[in-house]
Design a protein around this nucleic acid. Structure first.
Lengths: 110, 110
DNA sequence: TCTGAATATTCCTTGACAGGAATATTCCTT
DNA sequence: AAGGAATATTCCTGTCAAGGAATATTCAGA
């Protein structure tokens, strides 16, 4: 999760992922469409690869990169644990304030 | 999306968010539970706040932070555009290879 | 009003990381 | 075998951001 987020936090890498959303692409194509020069594209793809976000398929000279499903699934289930924030009524600030008050009153307890 | 990812990419900030998943918390509480010293906690909360991930509620001396729903909703719909990767059969590598081949054959077209 | 608690802000330093340029590697084509 | 395309790797440099320490601010209570 942490490495995934880290990989996606870089703008160019996010762009790459959004490009690959529509299907596999070659390093050269990616570099072209994003206005990167080839080495930077390769480097970013490496990071994405290490994070498990993409996988490579070597065909002769070319390397064809495509998205891997797993990280997105994980992402999905991670989000799942936050759904209650806008489903249930999560905004229990009142309760929390009462808690604070209670603690203040009994601040000499051990 | 980019700022959201950036904010979450930092480990301590991710922890803060996961803490707040269970309800609002005070700066001091957050710092305690995460083993941060107060200034760092405040700084991270500032970043999270700028990213719109949390909101503050001032009560006397204390600042009570809690999660905001919006960014998570956005996240959810962002993920939505990636669902086809594991729902439909996305792995159309064969098609892509044929495309490559076609381009190679006609590489003298304009 | 004074003290102390809770929080924010500033300044500084250090480490990580992205970009550029150059080079290495692999493979196809002739 | 040679040249060139496609990609990866290395080295260097500059930038940015996180952490530490110190300080400022606000507030409650005695």
């Amino acid at each position: 999760m942490k490495t995934t987020l880290n990989a996606l936090a870089e703008p160019n890498r996010l762009h790459i992922v959004e490009l690959l959303r529509d299907g596999p692409l070659t390093v050269g194509e990616i570099a072209d469409r994003l206005g990167l020069n080839q080495p930077q594209a390769s480097k970013h793809l490496r990071v994405l690869s290490n994070a498990g976000l993409v996988e490579v398929n070597a065909i002769a000279n070319r390397r064809i990169y495509k998205l891997r499903a797993e990280p997105f699934k994980e992402f999905d289930s991670w989000l799942e644990s936050y759904r209650h924030i806008w489903n249930e009524r999560f905004d229990r600030l009142d309760d929390y304030l009462q808690d604070l008050q209670r603690k203040d009153v009994n601040h000499d307890d051990k």
